[in-house]
Design a protein around this nucleic acid. Sequence first.
DNA 1: TTCCAGGGTGAGT
DNA 2: ACTCACCATGGA
Length: 255
Amino acid sequence: MRARINLRLTMESGQPPEFFWNKEGERYWRELGKSRCYLWQEGEELHYLGCDEGYVREFLRLEDDLEEIYAVISAGDEVMERAIGRFQGLRITKNDPWETLVAFICSINNNIPRIRRNVQCLLRGGRIPPPEELAGAELSSARLGFREGYLRATAAVLARMDFHAIGELGYEEARQELMKLRGVGEKVADCVLLFGFGYLEAFPVDVWIARAMRAYYGITSVKEMRRFARERWHPYEGYAQQYLYMLVGRRGRRG
DNA sequence: TTCCAGGGTGAGT
DNA sequence: ACTCACCATGGA
């Protein structure tokens, strides 16, 4: 299908796909259900195999109007304009909430290559086992360090609640509910809301975003950063965050 | 050897 | 509400 997207940027920008999907040449794949789903891009043409178009459109958020989003977040913002120019076609992805939560508990004070290794060690048949299963599973071989206790405790709680219902709440309320879980603070909660539940107004502040906000906008406190983001980029704070991240993140910096 | 990584928790103010 | 040591692992 034709789609406005830069698949490589989208799949390799520190979002959940970087932890769950594999790369073979120019093709990305992962096991979904009983089949292996492949994604690749040739020019404007987005190809998929082993999964249906509906899944691809939801996963890559192809219904997001990039022109509208770009117009909103770049208004009166030269930094964002530059980031958009450099990373055209980068999209926020929509991932399974539980898998997203697991990945971002693994992300605590960790780096992307090792988060990926941790997540891959937790996969069973290509998926993260459901909470009730993970709660009693052997986790030490994944070498999560101090995160293992967080993950097990959260899995045990979720085994007894309707996790999906959080996605029906408003942003602030959903955020408060997530932060009741062990290993879920402001940053992890916002990542789960953005990449798992699809709240584009979520604005995760990690060390890189904090650096960017200080360097480009002179803001030093996280609370101020979140207020600034809402005032300037609402309701697309999540997109603004991802483009900012690319400017300063490990693979985003150049020369 | 020291510093750092898509931070959270708990204890101290 | 804010600060800060500590947390386990592995790469640079």
